[in-house]
């Protein structure tokens, strides 16, 4: 199915949700950028529409570009060769209190496999998926901060063990 046809369906199901389409990589793939708040409606359409049936969230990746977190959903269908890339952004406020951490609607009710992926991104980037700041168990208990944010400051000491990045000329 052509990307234009998918976007038409999304515009019908969630008017104003689609912001733009943009090239992804050099392989000819296109990504659909949407409003983060419209994620559940868009996700439900992508999964339930009989022509799309994008029922498999293959990957959820988060990247920080300047002061925004870009969330990318790599989708595919079990029944057809159709694949799609869905993207949304949330703005970061670096001086935020825990209640002000960026929030993105969860898609785990639509794609159940999103649960572990959302938890992971939540722990490493400090995103509240569905209002919840979850721990995936990747970081040791009691870890402070969100290490995959660009503003992350390495601690001088971790659980009583001194830590220094002096002597590394890379960063």
């Amino acid at each position: 199915m052509e990307l234009a046809a998918i976007i038409t369906k999304l515009n019908k199901a969630a008017p104003g949700a689609v912001l733009q389409k943009a090239r992804f990589g050099r392989g000819g793939a296109q990504a659909i950028w949407i409003e983060a708040r419209a994620l559940p409606a868009v996700a439900a359409t992508l999964r339930n529409d009989p022509d799309l049936k994008l029922d498999w969230l293959e990957n959820l990746s988060v990247a920080q570009l300047e002061d925004a977190l870009v969330i990318t959903y790599f989708l595919r269908s079990r029944e057809t060769p159709l694949c799609a890339i869905l993207r949304a952004t949330v703005t970061l406020n670096e001086n935020e209190s825990p209640a002000e951490l960026p929030e993105v609607p969860s898609v785990r009710e639509i794609w159940p496999m999103a649960r572990s992926m959302e938890r992971e991104s939540s722990e490493l980037f400090g995103i509240r998926f569905g209002g919840e700041l979850a721990a995936a168990g990747i970081l040791p208990k009691g870890w402070r901060g969100f290490p995959l944010r660009k503003s992350y400051v390495f601690p001088q000491e971790v659980f009583g063990i001194a830590h220094s990045r002096q002597g590394t000329d890379h960063a």
């Binding site: 293959e58 920080q64 790599f74 496999m113 572990s116 992971e120 890379h170």
Partner: peptide
């Protein structure tokens, strides 16, 4: 010279889940 982000999707995450 440096990557902005490298993310891996690994199969064991689903098995653990």
């Amino acid at each position: 010279r440096f990557p902005a982000r490298i993310q891996f999707r690994v199969p064991t995450t689903a098995t653990l889940a």
